[in-house]
């Protein structure tokens, strides 16, 4: 069983570990680093509860090997808040009631955060498309769209 020494920069801090080839990035984040804000919901790359940013792009970390992230940057929900200041997307979810059970929320926020980095003022259709790889069972998406719009306005 091949083991790999990997170093991944997570939320700005480099972390090293020895992992099996098959070890999934989501397990590295949750179990090795103890960052449990990234969730697992479907195992088949459908639900997006495990969404993190890999080199700035949102990806489903249940379908990335930890070893594939070697030498790369990962940002998780725990990295959104900076110096005690919430990211606008976090504020948006709170202000617009964009979450209920909270399970899809970290992934949803990472996708929203990445969208707003690229598109400053997305239309409702663009937001709905952008979050279509993240499933939510509670909110019916209406307030998630509003949450992203709130964050977009806040960033203007």
């Amino acid at each position: 069983m091949a083991m790999h020494k990997i170093t991944v920069t997570v939320n700005g801090t480099a972390h090293s570990a020895e992992v099996e080839s098959r070890f999934l990035l989501v397990h590295f984040i949750r179990e090795v680093l103890g960052l449990t804000g990234t969730h697992i919901g479907c195992d088949t790359t459908h639900c997006g509860a495990c969404t993190v940013l890999l080199d700035g792009e949102p990806v489903k970390s249940c379908t990335v090997l930890a070893v594939q992230a070697h030498g790369r940057r990962v940002m998780t929900v725990e990295g959104l808040e900076r110096d005690g200041k919430l990211d606008p997307i976090q504020e948006g979810f709170m202000q617009e009631h964009g979450l209920q059970c909270g399970f899809c929320t970290p992934g949803m926020m990472m996708t929203g955060h990445a969208l707003l980095r690229r598109t400053k003022n997305p239309s409702e259709a663009e937001i709905r498309q952008a979050i279509s790889g993240n499933l939510c069972r509670c909110t019916g998406y209406v307030n998630i769209v509003k949450a992203v719009q709130y964050a977009a306005a806040k960033q203007q």
Binding site: L35, T38, L80, G102, T105
Partner: peptide, 9 residues
């Protein structure tokens, strides 16, 4: 919400 939006659920 403060805990959920921080991934602290």
């Amino acid at each position: 919400d403060p805990r959920f939006i921080r991934g602290q659920g």
